[in-house]
Design a binder for these strands. Structure first.
Length: 247
DNA sequence: AAACTATCCAACCGCCTATAA
DNA sequence: CTTATAGGCGGTTGGATAGTT
């Protein structure tokens, strides 16, 4: 049990834990110390910063400050229209996977993109409970996919990933076609409706045939995975292939 | 001019994963 | 194999600022 000494020790330690780390906005002096640390020791080992740089910040806080603000390769200033279009496209594909999206936008951080999307587009998105449900479903499918993936040898997996990539390309083409069929002034409203109906019946067949093929020829089950075109993205990511989709 | 509201964004929190011990 | 730790991620918060009434 506790004697007086251990009790005092525990309590004061708890107090110190709270007091040791500074929080809140960074001062210019703290920024200077952190930059000096990175210059000497490089990025990483963030928990050493307090000891080696004399900063009363925990490792997480230091990493965040560096990654989101001090890094020299950061692009300052407003998001350009081009960058905005990339954000929209990648968000449509991947959802709230901000760090993934940020990798396609050099000099922009996940935090910046997340903030930008939330302030500019959140309102237009579907209601949050719906999104919540989708996120959970997506997580589940990722887990299922990951488990299955480990059952296949690399060659089988390569074939499967190639099929997924092919489907993704088709899907991109289809999106362009749909845009043309549903918005061109060359069609009447009735024709546009018919175009859209035809389009969906065709693309639905494509997806069904891919699902059947994977299932019949490879024993690979894709539960609802292709219902959201964006999900092919994480499938490829999990596959661990060096393919990067170009915009 | 003052009060109120909306927007922006830096920084925090909790959770998860990878890796070291 | 288990546990501890660091780093990474997405969601959220709260203060500052801009805009509106």
């Amino acid at each position: 049990m506790f004697n007086l000494r251990t009790m005092v020790g525990h309590w004061s330690w708890g107090l110190m834990e709270d007091e040791v780390w500074r929080k809140g906005p960074w001062t210019a002096e703290e920024d200077r110390l952190l930059m000096e640390y990175v210059r000497i020791y490089g990025e990483g080992r963030w928990n050493s910063v307090a000891r080696l740089a004399g900063l009363k910040r925990n490792g997480k806080s230091c990493r965040l400050r560096w990654v989101n603000y001090l890094r020299p390769d950061l692009k300052r200033g407003h998001i350009t229209p081009h960058e905005e279009s990339i954000i929209l496209e990648l968000h449509a594909r991947w959802g709230n996977r901000w760090s993934t999206i940020a990798r396609s936008l050099p000099g922009r951080t996940d935090n910046e993109i997340k903030n930008y999307w939330r302030t500019h587009f959140k309102k237009k998105a579907k209601d949050s409970s719906d999104a919540n449900g989708k996120a959970k479903a997506r997580l589940l499918r990722r887990q299922q996919f990951h488990q299955q993936q480990q059952q296949f040898n690399p060659i089988e997996m390569t074939k499967i990933m190639a099929l997924l990539e092919e489907q993704h390309d088709k899907s991109n083409n289809n999106n362009n076609k749909l845009e043309a069929l549903s918005s061109s002034s060359a069609f009447t409203e009735a024709e546009k409706k018919q175009n859209i109906t035809n389009f969906y019946s065709q693309t639905g067949d494509n997806e069904q045939s891919l699902i059947s093929e994977l299932n019949n020829n490879h024993g690979f089950v894709l539960p609802e995975m292709l219902n959201e075109g964006l999900d092919v993205g994480w499938a490829m990511e999990l596959g661990g292939y060096p393919w990067q989709w170009q915009l």
